[in-house]
Design a protein around this nucleic acid. Structure first.
Lengths: 239, 239
DNA sequence: CAGTGGTCTAGACCACCTT
DNA sequence: AGGTGGTCTAGACCACTGC
């Protein structure tokens, strides 16, 4: 017997094909896609089948559609989208966009923990970026971001990092963060970090470990944030 | 000019109609719905329109469909679903179902904060239920649940509360929790709670405030949990 | 075997946007 | 006016389930 082929619904094959084109950069963010009819003819399926694939991609936020205009590759450099994954709120529910100050950036070998979290090869180099984020001109969050150089070549050579790193990831490296996984703990803040956040040593703070996932499913960034919950709350809605 | 009627797509009207039937209990959890064809004939639309409404409800976890069997009202008393909103994990990512011990239950007027969170009328009565949840036979979580008596009549008269309260909500009160909103803070644990959790006073713990939402959109329960993050982590995946 | 949901197609009309 | 996506219908075939 010959090996059985993978049987997939047509719309799913179309879905995979379109995703592949997004990953390879065939269509770029904010670019308009061909119409349903054109795609259907090119691929060789009916318009309804293309529509089902497109709608699923819209549901997963890869595409955006506008009646009368067309279908666009999702632009994740707009404020509303950039802060889709920013879960820290003031106790009243308001979200303020923090100012950011870079404390330092070093290049080194990944630790065992980072190698595991980021699915790296042994001895890969990473950049460790440390930043302090302030709200109302008060330092509120200190965060350490680990960026593999294999994913972001020479990322530590950039001057003027944007407030939201995802802008840089998308515009310079073609990497679009589609989902994140957070692990939240309560810990006592270390002496060093306490100074940066203007808190007493040993104060309880939220420690938020985040893995960020690219459109192709790879974990491309890992960060650890410490955040006083005097003025900030980690807030999520689960459905 | 006469007031303009609300124009809604057909499938959305069908969607609303079906939800209304779920809310009024016309179809009950685990019950099978009529086939697409029967629903279409009864409502007076085409089968495709019914399908679009049904698929949206499946996406929102109100219904479940099985090829060859039929469409069912979601059964949220199965373990997999019951713990859909249980976000506490061991540091290795494993989830263990905790044992539960009731510490006490009192009936009193809602505080101003609770009245606001639960959208209650002034001076409504609530039940305050306090429980300790243990993992590996070690107390790990202490939680206070606020249940309005207007939503859950005589809920404090129940003996043998189930481990997962949502079973009780659904089976005795017809209330199905469809979504929750969490606010997570880091705080120092109080002396009283420290004893219950076998922790030093002032240890950093996660404080998780949760509002639980019924299928009709009302907030029907509010809880506050304190949890040592020595052995537990609040873990979410955001897409 | 009959009945169900899953997939796919084709054609129609509408509302919206651009030119 | 012409093109786009949004909605709706109708009909067909398939895979799965239960009798």
């Amino acid at each position: 017997m010959s090996p059985s082929p993978e049987l997939q619904p047509l719309y799913k094959q179309v879905y995979e094909l379109l995703i592949a084109r997004l990953i390879e950069g065939y269509w770029k963010p904010s670019q308009i896609l061909p119409s349903e009819m054109l795609l259907a003819k090119e691929i060789g399926v009916s318009q309804g089948t293309v529509r089902k694939a497109l709608n699923q991609m819209v549901a997963e936020k890869m595409l955006q559609r506008q009646q009368g205009k067309g279908t666009f590759v999702a632009e994740h450099t707009q404020e509303s989208d950039l802060f889709r994954f920013f879960r820290l709120r003031e106790p009243n529910g308001e979200m303020l966009i923090p100012d950011t100050l870079v404390l330092g950036s070093t290049r080194r070998k990944a630790s065992g923990y980072e190698t595991e979290k980021l699915n790296l090869k042994a001895n890969e180099l990473v950049v460790e970026l440390t930043r302090v984020r302030s709200i109302h001109n008060k330092p509120a969050i200190i965060e350490k971001v680990i960026q593999p150089l294999s994913v972001f070549p020479d990322i530590d050579k950039n001057t003027d990092l944007p407030n939201a790193l995802y802008i840089l990831y998308q515009e310079k490296y073609g990497i679009t963060i589609m989902s994140v996984s957070d692990e939240v703990r309560a810990v006592e803040i270390s002496k060093d970090y306490a100074q940066h956040l203007d808190l007493p040593e040993g104060s309880p703070v939220l420690m938020i470990e985040r893995s960020s996932v690219n459109i192709d499913g790879r974990i491309v960034e890992f960060s650890t944030a410490y955040c006083s919950s005097e003025n900030l709350v980690y807030s999520v809605h689960l459905t």
